[in-house]
Nucleic acid binder design. Structure first.
Length: 487
RNA sequence: GGUCUCGUAGCCAAGUGGUUAGGCACCGGUCUGCAAAACCGUCUACAGCGGUUCGAAUCCGCUCGAGACCUCCA
């Protein structure tokens, strides 16, 4: 346990702040989840992996964390023109399916992908459609406090009125005057009093397929609202950490703050965290721009951008080599580099497991361990942690070569902390080799035996032929001091 | 157009007033029949110009370049 030194960059203040949870030893964390109208792409995954890292480190520090990440299954409009259509409805019509079939299909995909990336599941994964009552009640609170108005069966948030009581634009650093000056005049905004106002509840036309009854008529909830309603329900009126992608800062998170303040009179969140984008060819990865890569394409290598497939753990390690607040550029070359580094780290951990303790230590294990914590305490600086882990790798190699040594307690500490940081905090795990069946093992024993005989007789042409032939079959032969091995 | 962020060696990427980041590649070496793998070593950069400072990649200004948000987005 080493609580009390963690600093988090808070978007609200623009500074790294010492993290102090509302309730000692407990942390409430909410992260905006995906809208399940399509397959999650790699950029989406980066955000969730970034917050998985934060979640894991908080757990590692000994906090009891309630991690809530929603599934948006309604209310996310195609555009903000308010005549925009719900993303899920569009997909449902196109594929001639029930909206909930779309939701189910892509939720399952999302879970499979997150699982492949070894991301821990959240403690609660609420859906918007499962919390309509909470959303309606939330709107009623805002209406009661006078920060919203009803118009033609819809309810809108009154941004200008709110701005007189609370600052609007604090999170994204925007001034309401600038926003008004720059907002576009869109068609179909007759219901709204001002362009900046956003929908809390929208009335539904007859042909609309996803709709529910409400005090204002048949309709559906606004996108910004669900996160306020669900985070409030499970984490309270004010909670510790709210995360999401950088692109949600405005307007989504700004609106969440406004909704929270308008409903309860207090700021809903203490620490706002924003994960940066994954870029492809220097541009933000995004579905709508057609600039995205799907995880399964990456794993299989079936994409023109890739030379080969990559294991999910390699991709995760690749992401851990960049700070969550920096953009990360995706290239096949960068991923290949990460693959080698990842294997080096994993090999070193295997070696660490078999090191024999000595009478004395020539390495200061405690300062190595401190460097791990220092890195992560500094706003979850995973790339610095990785660099420090490679320092440890260097030391482990020196021990293997007999240049350095560790006594029992130090060795145990190093094993404990390295495994803790690599497996629990970074969330990496060894790549499972395809297990060979018994018959192959028997055949390989025979072949390796024959090759060893050939080598003993200096029959290099035979031994090389066996080695090359096996390589073609995808089996690598390694000649080591104590004999050859294969995998 | 407005707001903001970034520009670090061949590539990816930390750092953010003074001390080697790290990974990959390259090159040299150890090992090896040869190779592969592994290990060791080497390479030592901060877009440009100007300013502040004893000292700047780090702070300030300007220029150039890239990106994000302002419209759905993780």
């Amino acid at each position: 346990m080493r609580k009390g030194r963690l600093t988090i960059y808070n978007t609200l203040s623009g500074n790294k702040e010492l993290f102090c949870s509302i309730n000692k030893d407990f942390v409430g964390m909410y992260v905006c989840g995906p809208t399940v109208y399509n397959y999650v792409h790699l950029g989406n995954c980066r955000t969730f992996i970034s917050f998985d890292l934060a979640y894991r480190y908080l757990l590692h520090l000994g906090y009891q964390v309630r991690y809530v990440r929603n599934i948006t299954d309604v209310g996310h409009l195609e555009s903000d023109a308010d005549e925009g259509e719900d993303k899920i409805s569009i997909k449902a019509r196109l594929e001639k399916l029930e909206p909930m079939e779309i939701v189910q299909q892509y939720t399952i995909d999302f879970h499979q992908v997150m699982n492949a990336f070894n991301a821990l599941p959240p403690n609660i994964e609420p859906t918007a459609t499962g919390h309509l009552i909470e959303q309606i009640e939330f709107i009623q609170s805002i209406l009661k406090n006078g920060f919203a108005y009803e118009s033609n069966g819809s309810v809108y948030f009154d941004v200008e009125k709110y701005n007189k009581a609370f600052p609007y634009g604090e999170l994204s650093g925007r001034k309401i005057e600038d926003l008004i000056a720059n907002s576009r005049a869109l068609d179909g905004q007759n219901e709204k009093r001002a362009p900046l106002d956003f929908a809390l509840w929208k009335n539904a036309s007859a042909e609309h397929i996803m709709k529910w009854p409400s005090p204002w008529g048949i309709g559906f909830p606004g996108w910004h609202l669900e996160c306020s309603a669900m985070s409030g329900k499970y984490l309270g009126e004010t909670f510790d950490i709210h995360g999401g992608g950088m692109d949600l800062k405005f307007p989504h998170h700004e609106c969440e703050i406004a909704q929270g303040c308008a409903a309860t009179g207090q700021k809903p969140v203490n620490y706002w965290m924003h994960a940066n984008m994954l870029t492809l060819n220097g541009k933000k990865m995004s579905k709508s721009a057609g600039n995205s890569l799907l995880p399964n394409e990456l794993f299989s290598g079936e994409n023109n951008l890739l030379n080969k497939g990559f294991d999910p753990m390699v991709v995760r390690f690749f992401m851990m080599q960049a700070h969550y607040r920096s953009t990360l550029d995706f290239t096949s070359d960068a991923l290949s580099a990460a693959e080698k580094g990842f294997k080096k780290l994993m090999l070193s951990l295997e070696n660490l497991a078999v090191i024999v303790p000595s009478d004395q230590s020539t390495i200061e294990v405690s300062s190595l361990v401190d460097s791990f914590y220092d890195a992560m305490d500094d706003d979850f600086n995973a790339p610095a942690l990785v660099a420090n882990l490679f320092e440890a790798v260097k030391q482990i190699n020196a021990i293997l070569e007999g240049k350095e040594s560790l006594k029992k307690e130090d060795l145990a500490l190093l094993k404990d902390e390295m495994c803790g940081f690599v497996f629990e905090v970074l969330g990496l795990k060894p790549i499972l080799e395809k297990s060979a069946d018994n018959r192959l093992v028997g055949v390989m024993d025979l072949i390796m035996d024959l090759r060893t005989s050939a080598r003993e007789n200096k029959d290099w042409s035979t031994s090389d032929k066996i080695r090359d032939g096996l390589l073609n079959a995808g089996i690598h032969v390694k000649d080591e001091k104590n004999g050859a091995s294969w995998k």
